Simulated scan of single mutants.
Amino acid sequence: PKYVVSTTLDSADWNGTTLLRGDAVEEVTALKERLDGEIQMHGSGGLARTLLAHDLIDTLHLHVFPVVLGTGFRLFAEGARPTAFRLTESTVTGKGVALHTYERAGRPTYGSYA
């Protein structure tokens, strides 16, 4: 199944798709409570920031590309609540893209990242 969080769509006509139009935090919280297994989110930095701020993301899969663009949006918003993640997997592709997987590790303790 596919769930689309949107404030602009009126319908989602894709096969197997459910449109989530309410408050994203409430909708995703309810989805996590009623579904077993993994829920993935792709392609929305704004939604990721919202879900991170409400402790609704357990694992981050970050792809770090070897380019500097100079502009763009931050994944971790200014003033974001400190949250610790633990690196669980890391690899580099032949093109130099670093693929990192981090899992939630609770609240950070200062000085614990050396």
Rank of each mutant, 00 (worst) to 15 (best):
H100N: 14
F85E: 08
A98L: 13
A48L: 12
V97M: 04
G37P: 13
S44D: 06
L62E: 06
G70V: 08
G45W: 00
G96N: 11
E78K: 11
E103H: 04
L9E: 00
L35A: 10
G37W: 12
E78C: 07
T83H: 09
F85D: 08
P66D: 07
A114E: 14
P108R: 04
R107T: 15
S44W: 00
Y113A: 14
V28M: 06
F85A: 08
L62K: 05
G96V: 13
S90C: 12
R34Q: 12
D36R: 09
N15I: 00
R107G: 10
F76D: 03
D10I: 07
A12M: 08
T88E: 13
A53W: 03
K32G: 00
D23Q: 02
V67Q: 03
L99P: 01
A80S: 15
V92R: 00
V97K: 01
A77V: 05
F76T: 01
L9F: 03
G96F: 09
L87I: 09
W14E: 14
A53L: 00
E89F: 03
D58P: 06
F85V: 14
T83W: 02
G16P: 12
G94R: 06
T18R: 06
Q40C: 14
K32N: 07
W14K: 09
S6V: 09
H61W: 09
G96H: 10
G45L: 13
T101F: 00
L31V: 03
R86E: 15
T7S: 11
D10E: 12
G94S: 11
L35W: 04
H61M: 12
T59G: 04
D23C: 02
Y113V: 13
V68L: 15
D10R: 10
L52V: 07
T71Y: 04
A53T: 01
G106V: 08
Y113R: 10
D36V: 12
F76M: 01
A98V: 15
V28N: 05
R81W: 01
G70T: 07
A80M: 13
L75I: 13
L19I: 04
M41Q: 13
V68S: 03
S6E: 09
D55E: 09
G46K: 05
Q40T: 15
I57Q: 10
D58S: 10
T91Y: 05
V97Y: 04
L75N: 11
L51R: 01
L69A: 10
A48F: 09
F76R: 02
G111D: 06
E38P: 10
L20A: 01
N15H: 10
V4H: 01
R86Q: 14
E38V: 15
H54Y: 08
